[in-house]
Amino acid sequence: MLDVRDVVTAYGKIEALKGVTLSVAEGRITCLLGPNGAGKTTLMYSIAGILKPRRGRIALKDREITGRAPDQVVQAGVALVPENRLVFPQMSVRENLTAGAYLRRDRAGIAADMERMFQRFPRLKEREGQLAGTLSGGEQQMLSVARALMSRPRLLLMDEPSLGLAPLVVEEIFRIVTELNRDGTTIFLVEQNAHMALKVAHHFYLMEQGRVSFSGTPGEVEEAEVIQRAYLGSRRAD
């Protein structure tokens, strides 16, 4: 579904991605592990068109999207749930969802999808008219996912969806990730919580210092010593 080949992205002279190659299989959940500063968010931004890679190639189903503007990438069927910056705070929950469907013109379809989101996230229905900035952290994360889904993406990118959330909320997020995937959405997930990720993802990559240093199935992850030590030996405090 998504093919990333030798992508180099730099901030000025500093290369945050030093030639990243990986692929995300259609219909699967792929998870990207790695320490802070490894370049995971930079990769997400490079795919979504926020950052322009210096070299390399990014293709979605054989269609090249390298260096496209973010709106064109959304049009091509990719949606990103970014880390931290989750919702438009001064807009209501409903307005946030409408914003997610900005590029779509099919009013009936948008209305139907909105109802589907409210079924999937009943708590958002309760808060429909409330300003998004007043929601709890978990609710904002749900809204952020729902907003991204409103563009009807074929590929959903999620940057650390469990960051800073309570364990119960994290479980709910991962339940939703599994459901979405079962309904046909391909998911590419950045996660530090390897324990949770192991329960849902089909394939893993490990990124360190701007490079992919490991690729394998959940079984291979549990075998790999490098990941054992860093991610599974003790649960990370954050």
Binding site: G49, P70, D71, L80, P82, R85, F88, M91, Y102, L103
Partner: peptide, 20 residues
């Protein structure tokens, strides 16, 4: 107008929602 509000509140999120 919706587009303006999105850009004003969060440029990054607006771009990720498909706005130039």
């Amino acid at each position: 107008g919706r587009r303006l509000r999105m850009v004003g509140e969060d440029e990054l999120l607006a771009a990720l929602s498909g706005i130039d």
